[in-house]
Simulated scan of single mutants.
Amino acid sequence: MNNKKTPLDQFEDAFIDSVLNMSESELDEELREMELDPEAAITRTKAAIAQGIIKANKANFARTRSQLADAKARLASSSKLGDRSGAVARFEKLKTGDPDLSNRMMMAARKGKGLSENDVEAILEDLDDLEKLEKGDDGK
């Protein structure tokens, strides 16, 4: 990477420094000499800064949204593409080992109306995650 500044970059830096180092009265005088209203210049400058902040925030939001979508896709693909036989077997073992477990899960999940397909899928995903943790596989 080339860190050397061109003469134009050096001029720009010097110009910015000179403006930043001016007192308020010097800056007002400079603007009036250029036939500009200092208050209008301040208003336009604040508006430009606000627009820049909005633009940067929108870009950050879009990048974050994209990262979230990527993370969700990775999680969904890792849990749905994996072999569920171990999780299913574990779930069945849990149900048969405790005859009241099935009833308690139904009561908790649906107030006595039974487990839905989504409920079972969520339980299987949880069991699959537990199995991965036990094996030391964090999915990465």
Rank of each mutant, 00 (worst) to 15 (best):
T64P: 00
T64W: 08
R65T: 14
R65D: 14
R65K: 15
S66L: 13
S66N: 13
S66I: 08
S66W: 07
Q67W: 15
Q67I: 12
Q67D: 15
Q67R: 15
L68S: 12
L68Y: 13
L68E: 13
L68P: 00
L68H: 13
L68V: 13
L68R: 15
A69M: 14
D70T: 14
D70Y: 11
A71M: 06
A71K: 12
A71Y: 08
A71F: 09
K72Q: 15
A73C: 07
A73I: 11
R74V: 09
R74T: 07
R74A: 08
L75V: 09
A76S: 12
A76M: 09
A76K: 15
S77A: 05
S77K: 11
S79N: 04
S79G: 01
S79F: 05
S79M: 13
L81K: 11
L81V: 02
L81N: 13
G82T: 14
G82Y: 10
D83Q: 11
D83K: 11
D83I: 04
R84H: 10
R84Y: 09
S85I: 03
S85L: 11
S85F: 09
G86D: 05
A87T: 07
A87W: 09
V88E: 15
V88R: 15
V88F: 10
A89G: 07
R90V: 00
R90D: 05
R90E: 06
F91T: 01
F91Y: 14
F91G: 03
F91Q: 06
E92V: 03
E92N: 08
E92F: 05
K93L: 10
K93P: 00
K93N: 13
K93I: 00
L94W: 10
L94G: 03
L94Y: 10
L94K: 09
K95T: 08
K95I: 14
K95F: 09
T96P: 00
T96N: 08
T96G: 00
T96L: 04
G97E: 07
G97S: 05
D98I: 01
D98Y: 02
D98E: 04
P99N: 02
P99Y: 06
P99Q: 08
P99I: 03
P99D: 05
P99M: 02
P99S: 06
D100E: 14
D100S: 08
D100V: 01
D100C: 00
D100T: 07
D100I: 02
D100F: 04
L101R: 11
L101Q: 09
L101H: 08
L101N: 04
L101Y: 12
S102P: 00
S102A: 06
S102R: 03
N103R: 11
N103D: 11
R104H: 07
R104F: 07
M105N: 03
M105S: 01
M107I: 08
M107T: 07
A108T: 03
A109K: 02
A109R: 03
R110L: 02
R110H: 07
R110A: 10
R110P: 00
K111I: 01
G112R: 09
K113I: 00
K113R: 14
K113N: 09
G114P: 00
G114D: 02
G114R: 02
G114A: 00
G114M: 01
L115Q: 12
L115T: 03
S116D: 08
S116H: 06
S116Y: 04
